[in-house]
Every structure is written in structure tokens, then in C-alpha cells.
């Protein structure tokens, strides 16, 4: 192996030790949902945000609050409602009568891990305020601009049922989420374990085990993970196949796709693949990493046509067909 990569492999093996500690601690509280936990860590290591879709009661809040406890960061849960205002999120200026001046009252967004629960229930102006914070990593209140604390990660949830009176996120705003993870119900064994574990007398508690600095340090290592040109081309082939399926021998899905994935998808695919390789303790990206991340990176970026909706073809179906067609390098 190349000396740099060999050294990087060693470094990653050393630096990624805390991942095991985190997963061990999470497993104390969360049963199953390994995919969700892994995606949470990938988003955290890739400095991205996560959109989570699943029915209520699947431990979304518990997972992120547990993670926050483990990595010793602040956590805020914001329940999005139709009457929520941007100031409720980012904060506002309050007049101080004693000092006869305006003082800044920071909103709940000033935290490390944010759970934006049911983001589609708040109006567009609140969604927009949140997404701006996510993108810019700063908030301006009055004349003052405040940088967000690092690490900063938003985990927004969407409820796939009860869609009446909701404000679905526009495609441009959904694109800002690095990953969209769809979670399902645990299996019978897992659910039995959940029943046993979560007794009201002695609820499970995770212990803090690493500092936020370790996460920031790990992020730097993730950026060093080697991505070969062949892997980059593989990523590009997948992304371009969502835009021009006919050029990749996928004429049958041409009419099913309205819009393919954006260039942001290529960037996120590469970044998350690096994070995935890091989690696996590797200093280089393989096609496995790309394929592992492709679905979560692309599912909210491939916009299906009306024809696809009529035929009940989802973006996941299209991505599966693309991954099945594009040959690995």
C-alpha cells in the first residue's frame, strides 16, 4: 500500500476508536436502528444535516439526545408548529428597561445538536430561517451576527402521515440536507428488547464518553481520506445517470425523472463516502462506500415526474435501477 495511505489507515484506526465507544453507548439506549445511528455519525463527521422521515415513536428524539449526551454537546428540540415565528427560532432583541437598551435574546437554534421536529408543520418563513442557519452557520439578530457553535448539526424530522395543513419543504431547501434517512419499525426481537430495556423504574442512560473536540478532530481526518479518480468517476456516473439516464442505457426511466441530482449531490456523495470509509476504519474510499451512501444522498434530490407517481415509481426505485446499471470501477 502507498505509504501515505498506509499511514492514514493507521491514523484512522486510531482516531476512529471513539466511534465504537459512541455506538456502544447508543446501543445501551437505542435498540436496533443501526442505519439511523450510522447516518447520524456520518452527518456529524461530514459536517452536514440530516432529514429523517419516519412515523412517530421510532426513537428519533431519543437517538439525537443520547448522541448529544455522549459527545457532551448542547441539545435543543424545537417542535415546529404553524404559529411558530422565525424569532422563536433564532432569537430577538429585547428592550432592557433597567439599562435602557436592547439586548439580544438568543433563540434555541444556538445549540450544537438541533432536533427540528416535524419541520413541515411550520410556515415557509420559519423553514427558511432554519435552513439559512444551516447553510450560513451564522445568525444575524438586529445588527449583530452570531456564529453557530461547532459542532452544529440539524436533524429535521418529517412525518409521512397526517399531511393535511403541512408546508412541504421546497426542493431547493430539501437539497440543503446532506442525507435523507427513512427509518422503519424495529423487528419483533428488537421491539421485545425495547420493552425489556425501557422499564419505567430503571430507564437506560448513556454516559458521556468523548469531547466535542474529538468530533472536530475526526472531521479533519475524514477530509484526508483518499478518493481515487476511479471512484470520483463512479460517483459522477451515478449522478449523471440521474440527469441523463438515456446516456447510460436507462431509457426506461428517462420519462420518470423530472430533475436529476444537483452538483451538491456529487459533493455530498464524496464527503459522506469518506465518512463511511472512516467509520469502517479505512483511509480510502471504495465503491462499497459510494453505494452505501448513494440512496440517502440521492433520494430527496431525484425528483420524479407525474408519470412516475402515476406508476407508483419512487425515487428509491430509480436510484436502485441506476446503481444496478452503473458498473463498479
Amino acid at each position: 500500500m502507498h505509504e501515505d495511505i498506509q499511514a492514514l489507515n493507521e491514523k484512522i484506526k486510531k482516531e476512529s476508536q471513539f466511534i465504537k465507544d459512541i455506538t456502544n453507548e447508543i446501543e445501551k439506549v437505542i435498540v436496533g436502528q443501526k442505519n439511523m445511528v450510522e447516518r447520524l455519525l456520518i452527518a456529524l463527521l461530514s459536517d452536514g444535516h440530516l432529514l429523517l422521515e419516519g412515523v412517530p415513536g421510532l426513537a428519533k428524539t431519543l437517538a439525537i439526545s443520547t448522541l448529544s449526551t455522549i459527545i457532551k454537546t448542547k441539545f435543543q428540540r424545537i417542535q415546529f408548529t404553524p404559529d411558530l415565528l422565525p424569532a422563536d427560532l433564532v432569537g430577538t432583541l429585547i428592550y432592557n428597561q433597567q439599562e435602557a437598551c436592547f439586548t439580544t435574546k438568543k433563540g434555541p437554534i444556538f445549540s450544537n445538536l438541533i432536533l427540528a421536529d416535524e419541520i413541515n408543520r411550520a410556515p415557509a418563513k420559519v423553514q427558511s430561517a432554519l435552513l439559512e442557519c444551516m447553510q450560513e452557520r451564522q445568525v444575524t439578530i438586529g445588527e449583530n451576527t452570531f456564529k453557530m457553535d461547532e459542532p452544529f448539526m440539524v436533524l429535521a424530522t418529517q412525518n409521512p402521515i397526517e399531511q393535511h395543513g403541512t408546508y412541504p419543504l421546497p426542493e431547493a431547501q430539501v437539497d440543503r440536507f446532506m442525507l435523507k434517512v427513512v427509518i422503519g419499525y424495529p423487528n419483533k426481537e428488537e421491539e421485545k428488547k425495547i420493552m425489556e430495556l425501557h422499564s419505567p423504574i430503571n430507564p437506560p442512560v448513556a454516559s458521556p464518553c468523548i469531547d466535542p473536540e474529538a468530533i472536530l478532530k475526526a472531521r479533519k481526518v475524514v477530509r484526508e481520506v483518499y478518493v481515487d479518480e476511479k471512484i470520483e468517476n463512479y460517483i459522477l456516473d451515478i449522478i449523471f445517470a440521474t440527469r441523463y439516464p438515456e446516456k447510460y442505457g436507462l431509457e426506461e426511466i428517462k420519462d420518470l425523472v423530472s430533475y436529476g441530482a444537483s452538483p451538491r449531490a456529487s459533493l455530498y456523495m464524496k464527503t459522506t463516502s469518506c465518512a463511511h470509509a472512516f467509520l469502517m476504519g479505512r483511509g480510502y474510499v471504495t465503491p462499497e462506500d459510494v453505494r452505501a451512501m448513494a440512496m440517502d444522498v440521492l433520494r430527496h434530490r431525484v425528483i420524479v415526474s407525474y408519470e412516475a407517481e402515476a406508476e407508483e415509481v419512487s425515487s428509491e426505485d430509480i436510484i436502485r435501477r441506476i446503481l444496478g446499471k452503473i458498473e463498479v470501477p
Binding site: 500500500m1 502507498h2 495511505i5 481515487d228 483511509g283 480510502y284 471504495t286 470501477p329
Partner: peptide, 10 residues
Amino acid sequence: CDMVRFARHE
């Protein structure tokens, strides 16, 4: 093969 092609393994 993967090591050589993706990890610059000599």
C-alpha cells in the same frame, strides 16, 4: 485488485 486500484496499494 481493489487495494491497488482504490488505495494506491503498491
